[in-house]
């Protein structure tokens, strides 16, 4: 399972970099969405995939019986998803405003501050 996930994460990173290198603003944002998903899956995978062992302690015991899945990575991912949600909402507003002001969807036409 880990190797499949590793390939998925790699493919997501590759796809997001490809999208971010395109000239269109909308594709840039799609790239950013893919990027944050790729990172979340990466955390999920490297912290160990455990099936069907919820970290719940049965009544009268101190530890869950027979091993348990680590809940912390899921908390991290949840936090990262929330942050990603906020950032992406901002990014969408930004590209909309940028499109209105510049009148172009083309990043190559946005060079006036570079010179």
């Amino acid at each position: 399972m880990e190797s499949v996930m590793a390939v998925v994460v790699g493919a997501l990173f590759a796809a997001s970099v490809y999208m971010m290198l395109r000239r269109s603003l909308v594709k840039l944002v799609i790239g950013l969405i893919l990027l944050s998903n790729a990172a979340n899956l990466l955390i999920f995978t490297v912290s160990g995939l455990t099936r069907g062992k919820p970290p719940l302690i049965p009544e009268g015991m101190d530890l869950p019986a027979g091993g348990w899945a680590d809940p912390l990575p899921q908390a991290l991912i949840l936090t990262a998803i929330v942050i990603g949600f906020g950032v992406l909402a901002f990014a969408v507003v930004l590209i909309r405003r940028a499109y209105e002001v510049v009148g172009e969807d083309d990043l190559d036409k946005m060079r006036s501050t570079d010179l």
Partner: peptide, 21 residues
């Protein structure tokens, strides 16, 4: 929301998000 700000912000946002990831 002036033009230069938007153009600068696109680069700033993209690269900083990339570094956060």
């Amino acid at each position: 929301g002036e033009r230069g700000q938007m153009e600068g912000a696109v680069k700033y946002v993209t690269l900083n998000l990339f570094s956060s990831i």
